[in-house]
Amino acid sequence: MKLELSQDAIQRICFSREPSEEDLDAVGNRARWLLYRNMVRARLRRVCRVALPRTLEAAGEVRFDAWVDEWFAERAPRTRYFWRVVAEFAEYTRAKAAIEPLWLQELMRYEALHWHTRHDEGAPDAEILPIDFERVPFVNPTLTLLELAHAVHRPLAEGQASYPEEPTHLALFRRIEDDDTVTWSLNPMGAALVARWQLEQETLEQAVVAVAEARNASLNASFLESLAGLLEGLLERGLLLGSRP
């Protein structure tokens, strides 16, 4: 049997829902290739379980494992970077599997993003200057904003079986100084401002004016006071690093 054909058969043995008799016959050593199938699947399944513990608990092991099996059979890992396997699984499953209720889908999205933020590359690419309204803001390069219909970043309270609807804006990022991954909940205005600053196309002041106009907010004393508090919090937590040169 040609090498490429035998490797195709072995890959199917590893990832298909049930390995075919034809493939097992073709490669021989049936029991040992089934052992490989178990080892390959167990390792990949384990990293998904470790990375998404609350999704696993909420969905239950049977349902979670069925999603993993579906992903193996229909897509399989396309990344050579083991830590990125989780994002591929979550992305595929959210797109293809009927995950109900919606909060469970959002929980998977949140946990997968948290894992990804913890590991993904991203470091300041230029000198960071003190915050200045006349300069382009320097936003943490690992930041991702997430808009959800449920506050899934908070664990379910004891006795609570599901999340009520609660529009939620989350900022996930990795702190530069200690590499800790942080989740911060923002109000809609705060989320809009951070999203605009993240574009890094205009000065901090220009972005504030544009967002306020778009949301029909008056730049009065109360707004400016809230803005000062927001900036202080963002800088303190390491979401906003300062200004770009």
Binding site: L3, E4, S6, Q7, D8, I10, Q11, C14, F15, Y36, M39, V40, R43, L44, A76, P77, R78, T79, R80, F82, V85
Partner: peptide
């Protein structure tokens, strides 16, 4: 692995 997929294991060749 083959065809863009990765098994994340070291499978033998004949």
């Amino acid at each position: 692995g083959a065809h863009g997929a990765f098994v994340h294991d070291l499978l033998p060749v004949p």
